[in-house]
Design a binder for these strands. Sequence first.
DNA 1: GATGAATGAGCGTTCATTCAT
DNA 2: TATGAATGAACGCTCATTCAT
Lengths: 191, 191, 191, 191
Amino acid sequence: MARLSAKVRREEFIIAAARVIATTGVSGATTRKIAAEAGAPLAALHYCFESKEALFQALYEEQIKTMGESTWTIKPGIGVAETAAAMVPQLMEWYEQEPDYAQASGDLMFWSHHNDRALAELGVNAALEVMRETLRKGVSGPEERKLVEPLATLVLALTDGLLLQWLTFKDTQLRDKGVAAAMRALRCFAN
Amino acid sequence: MARLSAKVRREEFIIAAARVIATTGVSGATTRKIAAEAGAPLAALHYCFESKEALFQALYEEQIKTMGESTWTIKPGIGVAETAAAMVPQLMEWYEQEPDYAQASGDLMFWSHHNDRALAELGVNAALEVMRETLRKGVSGPEERKLVEPLATLVLALTDGLLLQWLTFKDTQLRDKGVAAAMRALRCFAN
Amino acid sequence: MARLSAKVRREEFIIAAARVIATTGVSGATTRKIAAEAGAPLAALHYCFESKEALFQALYEEQIKTMGESTWTIKPGIGVAETAAAMVPQLMEWYEQEPDYAQASGDLMFWSHHNDRALAELGVNAALEVMRETLRKGVSGPEERKLVEPLATLVLALTDGLLLQWLTFKDTQLRDKGVAAAMRALRCFAN
Amino acid sequence: MARLSAKVRREEFIIAAARVIATTGVSGATTRKIAAEAGAPLAALHYCFESKEALFQALYEEQIKTMGESTWTIKPGIGVAETAAAMVPQLMEWYEQEPDYAQASGDLMFWSHHNDRALAELGVNAALEVMRETLRKGVSGPEERKLVEPLATLVLALTDGLLLQWLTFKDTQLRDKGVAAAMRALRCFAN
DNA sequence: GATGAATGAGCGTTCATTCAT
DNA sequence: TATGAATGAACGCTCATTCAT
């Protein structure tokens, strides 16, 4: 019970941290604000996490894990071109459904550059791996295998880039045009 | 310290701010660190800028301006496909030559999301406009005009996304593969 | 520093603030000086009070309360004339016994004019009410009731005015002459 | 011309200081605010005055001088009682006509306690002397001479005290009642 | 185990003042 | 002489963290 409670508390702090970072950025995300957002006493934060940095790491790691566990609606063997194309709108949709996580994820990406390069690399590598795995599921022929790697890079770059534009404008129309263009680019790249 | 024109001083603070942000991130970029990096007394910072925030804005605005003034080696009338393709390596090269500005620019992009949304939009809009203008120079036929807009979005998204990967790994080989893939994607998108 | 109840700590800061204000005036009463005077770390001040202003308010409010709780040696039914006359030396004596509070009280009176007018009015109203109440205790006949209000004003004005002179010269002889004159004026005013 | 200009400038700074002190109190009266209020460059203040303190002293001295030069409408030989009584409303009227000077004067009185005791004493002594002189003009018989000293003390104390109440409430009715009471007290004191 | 109390370090900013011209 | 430029010192305050209970 106590063990569980601690786990639950950790999770609550992580969620609160995401919300606060999404609102104020990393530089404005103080322990006080996070504790308040979590509805927990300030000292509890350091009871659950060694430091604020550790909390941010945990959040970033969780976001990486979440991305890995995300379910993609991909028809197996549909071909890498269609698979890659299908990934873009699905990712962007997830960003829209979880705007706090999307925003915080970007903030933490840059934060990790300055505070934990290994984690930063882990994050991008994890994302790349997710792309690869998903693409592999769609592979329809042996010669398509060679396309998995560059497509993974492309899909990640495109979705990151489009996320930036989305976070800036929050403009659905603009986003959809970008998504359509990205899909077409990926399709013809792979054909 | 010798008497300097306010303009020179401002510029020095801006350069120092870029370096400090590139090293520590926005959250670690304190006025004292920036002043030390600039070799100036702390009070001088507030003599030149109303606030730390104003300094960051000035830096971000300058980066936007710099991007607009960057010279592209584009052969006029070469066609939008080739133009778009040519832009990717040129931008990435600039990022490599100015790593501090590249890193700080990313940090400030997210910082502006939380502190000055108008500036954030200005930044992305400026970048998009640069892409459009450059693409227009390469337009070879009237039917290519329609491609300028989606290509601008794509080039920006791709280069932003590749910058993220580059900032994370600083791996030249990886970057070149990404650049090659992006170029191919853009070429076949436009043909 | 040992663990202290928040109440005790607050009180210590208030006393320290009174001493510092009495010495340096409000404009010289910095948080650092007050904390040093209280023998407490600077951060503790802001743990107990929201701001320096809040500490000053608390001090001023306490002084108002203290004044209300002060015990007057008044024989009931002695008549308003004698009561009013008796109040002057008693108040001046208290000022002499608590010179820091007397001085700080004057400083804060003017400080409150500029920072919290409501508090300033509260202070004077509280003082007036104390005068009224005390005078009422001395009332010996129904026709004296009408004298309570003007006497309250007069006693307060006279004691404030004499306090100013006392704070300036700290001259006991001078003060006693002033007190004697004030007593005579009040006596014959009421007869 | 230049000499005159310097003199004029000094005067302008003094007037500006009075206004700023009246508005913000001594603690909020910064050199910048005063210079701005005077419409003069900041450095000019230190060109005219050795320090901010010197400016405040000059202001306080001028206020003392002004008080000495104030013209009283006193009928000679009317008797000390009537003279004293007549002084109260005249002073209060002057306070109403020059609210900034009245407020600043009070602030500076307490400021001088902490920064220049000699000046503080000078101020009160000057005020007392003004009271004495004016009272002497009204003396109607030799036996009234003895009343000049205590009356001077009383008039000053009463007007200071009433000023405090006036500055706090800015309530004309209340002030007039206080003035009436003070006049009656002075009259019967001297008869 | 859980938390209110406490704090050293450092924050962004403003101050009165001086200096170079 | 007159002033924009410049600054050391200090300001009020908040930070992440620890400690006593």
